[in-house]
C-alpha cells in the first residue's frame, strides 16, 4: 500500500518535471528559399526572438511549392506542433495551406509573402506579418525626390541631362510577386503624384543579384549614360547592378576627395529595399545611395509576439503590435542612408 502511494508520487513528480521542461511550444518555420539573404537573415532573427519560448523546426523549401507542401505536412506529422510560421513560395496557393491548417486546427502565421485577403479570411487563425509594399515604393520615391531637390519643376544637378525628366531604371523582382508589382508601380505613382516627370525602364531580375548583374550588361550598353537613377525592388538586385557598374567605370572617386560620394561625376543614385547587411556596408562606402529597410528584425519580433499571443502566453496588454482586422500586423519600412 505504502509502496504504491510512493510510486504514484514519483510518477506525479516525473510528470510535473517533464511538463515543466517541456513548456516550450513547437512551431514549424518554413522558408521559401534560405539562400535568399534577406530570408536567411530574417530566419536568424525569428530564431533569436523565439529562443526560450518557441522551439522551431526550420525547413528550406528551395523555391519549390511541391517541396514546401511536403515540408508543411512533415513538420506537423507525429511530433506535436502548436503553430506554423510559413513564408510561402507561391502566395496564391496559400488558400490550400490555410484550408489544411483549419482542418488540422493548427494556427498559421504567414510572413514575407502576403496571401490574398480573401484567403486569409478563410480562417480566423491565419495571420500575416509583413510590411506594406506600397510604403517601400513611396519611401524610395521620396528619397530620390529629396536628392533631386524636392522641386518637381526644377531638378538639381542629378538630372544629368537637364531635361527636367528623371530617367529611371526599375529593377523588378519576380513578375507576379506582389511586392515586385506593387513596389514597381507605387514608386512611379508617387513621382507622378508629386508632379515629377519620370521616364522608366523596367528590367526584371527576379530578386536575384546574379540576374541583375548579367542584365545590367545590355542595359549599360544601350542606355549607359542616360540612366539618372536606379530603383531596385530589393537590395540584392541593387548590389548586382552596382557591381556590374563598377566594372564599367562607374563609382570612382573622380574629384579625389578620398571617398565615393554624390559629388563624383560617375556616381548614380541606386536605392534598394530590405536593408541587408551588405547593402548597409555599401551605403557606408558610398556606392549605394540608400535603402528602405524592410524591418525584418521588428517583423521577427512581431511574429514571435503574435505566436505567444495566439498560444495564450502573452496578454493583449503585453502585445506591442496592433492586430489589424484580427489577422494582420503591419510593420513600417524605414529609410536608411548615410545621413
Amino acid at each position: 500500500m505504502k509502496n504504491r502511494r510512493n510510486f504514484i508520487f514519483v510518477c506525479l513528480c516525473i510528470f510535473l518535471l517533464t511538463s515543466c521542461v517541456d513548456q516550450q511550444d513547437h512551431a514549424g518555420l518554413i522558408l521559401y528559399k534560405s539562400t535568399d539573404p534577406f530570408i536567411y537573415n530574417f530566419a536568424r532573427q525569428i530564431e533569436t526572438y523565439a529562443d526560450g519560448t518557441l522551439e522551431l523546426e526550420v525547413f528550406d523549401s528551395k523555391n519549390s511549392q511541391i517541396l514546401q507542401n511536403e515540408q508543411i505536412l512533415e513538420a506537423q506529422l507525429g511530433e506535436v506542433t502548436d503553430l506554423m510560421i510559413i513564408n510561402p513560395v507561391d502566395r496564391l496557393s496559400s488558400y490550400a495551406i490555410i484550408n489544411k491548417q483549419r482542418e488540422l486546427e493548427i494556427p498559421v502565421i504567414f510572413f514575407n509573402r502576403e496571401p490574398l485577403q480573401k484567403d486569409l479570411a478563410l480562417w480566423e487563425d491565419a495571420y500575416y506579418v509583413g510590411a506594406k509594399a506600397e510604403q517601400s515604393g513611396q519611401l524610395q520615391a521620396e528619397l530620390i525626390m529629396e536628392l533631386f531637390g524636392s522641386n518637381p519643376y526644377e531638378l538639381n544637378e542629378h538630372d544629368r541631362n537637364g531635361d527636367g525628366v528623371i530617367q529611371a531604371l526599375i529593377l523588378k523582382g519576380e513578375p507576379g510577386h506582389q511586392d515586385a508589382e506593387i513596389r514597381s508601380e507605387e514608386v512611379v505613382k508617387v513621382f507622378n503624384k508629386q508632379g515629377y516627370t519620370i521616364d522608366t525602364l523596367v528590367e526584371v531580375a527576379n530578386w536575384e543579384r546574379g540576374q541583375a548583374y548579367e542584365n545590367m550588361d545590355d542595359i549599360l550598353q544601350d542606355y549607359g549614360n542616360q540612366i539618372e537613377v536606379i530603383l531596385s525592388n530589393n537590395d540584392a538586385m541593387a548590389i548586382g547592378a552596382i557591381q556590374r557598374m563598377r566594372e564599367s567605370g562607374f563609382f570612382t572617386d573622380t574629384n579625389g576627395n578620398g571617398q565615393i560620394d554624390p559629388s563624383d561625376e560617375n556616381w548614380i543614385p541606386v536605392v534598394g529595399i530590405d536593408g541587408i547587411a551588405e547593402a548597409v556596408g555599401l551605403i557606408k562606402e558610398g556606392f549605394l545611395y540608400g535603402t528602405v529597410i524592410n524591418d525584418s528584425d521588428v517583423q521577427a519580433q512581431a511574429i514571435i509576439e503574435l505566436s505567444e499571443f495566439i498560444l495564450g502566453k502573452r496578454s493583449s496588454a503585453d502585445f506591442s503590435f496592433e492586430l489589424v482586422a484580427d489577422s494582420y500586423i503591419w510593420v513600417d519600412y524605414k529609410v536608411f542612408t548615410l545621413e
Binding site: 507561391d90 496564391l92 496557393s93 488558400y95 490550400a96
Partner: peptide, 11 residues
C-alpha cells in the same frame, strides 16, 4: 499527389 499550381489558384 495534390499540388497547388503556382500563380493559378488551381490545384
Amino acid at each position: 499527389n495534390i499540388t497547388p499550381l503556382s500563380r493559378t489558384r488551381w490545384r
